[in-house]
């Protein structure tokens, strides 16, 4: 359950990164559709956070420690919205680049989450 969710979120993050990277390549700021994409990815990280907390409440233990696991879940949840807000303030291609970087950072966090859970 955790592994599948981690994989889906990681792939979605990379797709978002590619999409916004494409917008930056075409010299465009992030648009409504991009924000929809960010919302979808953020929703996935929210589900991940909820599932993670439920599993911990049921007594499961991540391989590398509960504190680190929760910290990474919160970081993953905050990652894309933070980049999204910055792209709202920067209405140029650089806003798109920032969201693309946010997607890559989230993908890295998902790989780490996979290790921390002990997949």
């Amino acid at each position: 359950m955790v592994d599948a969710l981690t994989l889906v979120t990681g792939v979605a993050a990379l797709l978002l990164a590619a999409w916004c990277g494409w917008a930056a390549y075409r010299d465009q700021p992030t648009k409504d559709w991009h924000f929809m994409g960010m919302a979808v990815v953020t929703l996935l990280t929210l589900v991940q956070l909820a599932v993670g907390i439920v599993l911990l409440a049921q007594g499961e233990k991540p391989e590398q420690g509960t504190t680190i696991f929760v910290a990474y879940l919160i970081g993953a949840f905050a990652c894309v919205p933070a980049a999204g807000f910055m792209s709202l303030a920067e209405r140029t291609r650089w806003g798109s680049v920032t969201v693309a970087a946010g997607g890559v950072v989230l993908a890295v966090l998902e790989v780490r989450l996979y290790d921390i859970w002990g997949g």
Binding site: T67, I68, A71, G75, C79, A82, A83, M86, S87, A89, E90, T92, W94, G95, V97, T98, A101, G102, V105
Partner: peptide, 26 residues
């Protein structure tokens, strides 16, 4: 200093702040 490429810099520095501070604190 945050316009244009500065946005990306602030974002990456922000990520590194969270990464380095939380990691070392833990």
């Amino acid at each position: 200093l945050t316009s244009g490429p500065g946005t990306l810099l602030v974002w990456l520095y922000g990520v590194m702040v969270v990464g380095a501070v939380s990691r070392s604190a833990y």
